[in-house]
Design a protein around this nucleic acid. Structure first.
Lengths: 223, 223
DNA sequence: CTCACGTTCATTGTATACAATATCAAAATC
DNA sequence: GATTTTGATATTGTATACAATGAACGTGAG
C-alpha cells in the first residue's frame, strides 16, 4: 500500500490522533517499507498542512476551533464560487454526474438508518462526490486542486456523526436545489444555496465542538 | 542550499523552463547532494503543483493561457475576500506593515526607472509584501497558506516586465486606496478595489500572452 | 528542591548500493 | 515503408548504512 495514502487515511479517520508523533522507523515497520518512501510521503503531507514539525520530526496537526472556522469560511467562499461558475459552464455530462451523486446520496441516507461506521463512510463519500461534481462542473481545474486540499481534514469526516436523520434529509433537499439552479443556469441562486449549505455544516460542527468542550470541562470537574 | 528552495526559485525565475525534465541525478550533482533530499524536494513541489509527472520522473509544469485565467480568477476571489476581512479585523500593527510595504513599493518604482532584472525583482518582492500584508491582516491563516500556493507561478513574476511606468504608478495608487479602505474599516470598498486591482493584472498578463502568441506565429510564417 | 550542565541515546538527515522498469533505438517482421 | 519486437541503457524506486543532531535524563551545584 502507498505510504502517503495510508498515513493520510489514518489521520482523516482519526486513527492517528492530533498531536501524535509520526516516527519514520515506526511507520516503516508498520507498512513493511524502508524509511525512504515514508519520508517522501511525510514531505507531501507536510506541504498539504496535514502534519506539522514536532520535536525533531513531524506530528499530526491538531485543528483548533478557530482553524475549523477559518477552513469552513474558506470552503464557503470557494464552493459557492464553484457553484455559481458551474451554473454558467456546466455541460450535460456534468448534470448527469450531479444527478447521479444525489441519487446515491439519497440511497445512502435512507439505507444507513443505523448510522454505524460503514454507513457514515458511505454518506461521507457520496456527499463528497456531489460537492466534487459541482467543482468539476465549474470549469476551473485550479479551484478543484486547491479545494481538495482545503476540505480534507479529520473534522469534516467526523461531522457526519453529528447529523440526525432530519438534518441529513434537509441536506439532501439543498443538494437538489443546488442541482436545479445549476441545471437552469441560475448562478446567483446556486451560489447562495451553496453558501447557506456549507454555513449550516459549519455551524453544526462548531456547535458540537462547543458541546465536546463543555463535556470535557465537566469531566475535569468530576476529577 | 536547500534543494526545495533552489528548484522552486529556478522555476519561478524561468531558469528551468516549462516542460523541462528534472532528472534527480542531474539536480543532485548541481547542488552537491545525494538523490535522497532531491526526491523529497520534488515530492513537495509536486504536491504544490509546480512540477508534474513527465516520462518516468517529473518536469516543470507549463501553464496554458486558460490556466493563467483560472489562477487569476481564483486569486481575485481569495484576495478580494482577504481585503474585506482585513478591513474588519486589522490591528494597528497590520496598518504599519501595510504602510511600510507601500512606502517600499513607491521607492522601488521610482528608483528602478530602468526596469532591469534586479529592479524588477525588487518591485516583485515589495508588491508581494503588500499583498501578503493584506492577507495577514485578514486574520485567516488558512487563507494565507493556500494563497501562497496559488500566487507563486512563473508568469506572475514575469508579468512585471510588461508594466510601463504609468501602470506601475497606477498600481501604487490602487494600493493606497486599498490601504485607506482597510484603515477606515470599509470592507466593501477594500474588496472591490482589490478585485479590480487583480483583474487589471490579469488582463495585462493575458493581453501580453496574446502578443507573444502572435509574435510566435509571425516567426513561424517567416520560417 | 530547582535549575544548569553534560552525557547518552533515539531519531532524523544524507549518501550509496542495488533492484526494478520505462524509454529509446535498432533490428526484424509484415 | 510502416509497425512490432526486443534488447541495451538510463533513470527511478527502495533498502541500508553511516553521520549529525537534538531531546531526555541523570548528575551535581547552588
Amino acid at each position: 500500500m502507498d505510504a502517503y495514502e495510508f498515513i493520510k487515511e489514518q489521520i482523516i479517520l482519526g486513527k492517528f490522533e492530533p498531536g501524535m508523533r509520526l516516527g519514520e522507523e515506526t511507520l516503516a515497520k508498520e507498512l513493511n517499507l524502508s524509511r525512504t518512501p515514508i519520508r517522501e510521503a511525510i514531505k507531501q503531507l507536510e506541504a498539504e498542512g496535514l502534519v506539522i514539525p514536532l520535536k525533531r520530526g513531524v506530528g499530526v496537526r491538531s485543528f483548533t476551533k478557530e482553524d475549523i472556522r477559518q477552513i469552513y469560511d474558506l470552503r464557503t467562499l470557494l464552493e459557492s464560487y464553484a457553484a455559481s461558475q458551474a451554473a454558467i459552464h456546466r455541460t450535460e455530462d456534468d448534470l448527469l454526474e450531479l444527478e447521479n451523486a444525489n441519487e446515491q446520496y439519497e440511497q445512502a441516507i435512507n439505507h444507513a438508518v443505523s448510522l454505524d461506521m460503514t454507513g457514515i463512510r458511505k454518506i461521507v463519500n457520496v456527499n463528497q462526490k456531489f460537492h466534487e461534481a459541482v467543482v468539476a462542473a465549474s470549469n476551473n481545474n485550479h479551484l478543484y486542486f486547491h479545494l481538495s486540499k482545503v476540505v480534507v481534514i479529520p473534522i469534516v469526516f467526523r461531522s457526519f456523526y453529528w447529523y440526525n436523520d432530519f438534518q441529513l434529509q434537509q441536506s439532501l433537499e439543498v443538494h437538489k436545489i443546488i442541482f436545479e439552479a445549476i441545471k437552469n443556469k441560475e448562478p446567483e441562486r446556486a451560489r447562495i444555496a451553496m453558501h447557506e449549505h456549507i454555513f449550516q455544516g459549519r455551524d453544526n460542527v462548531l456547535k458540537h465542538l462547543d458541546d465536546i468542550e463543555i463535556s470535557h470541562l465537566l469531566k475535569e470537574e468530576v476529577k
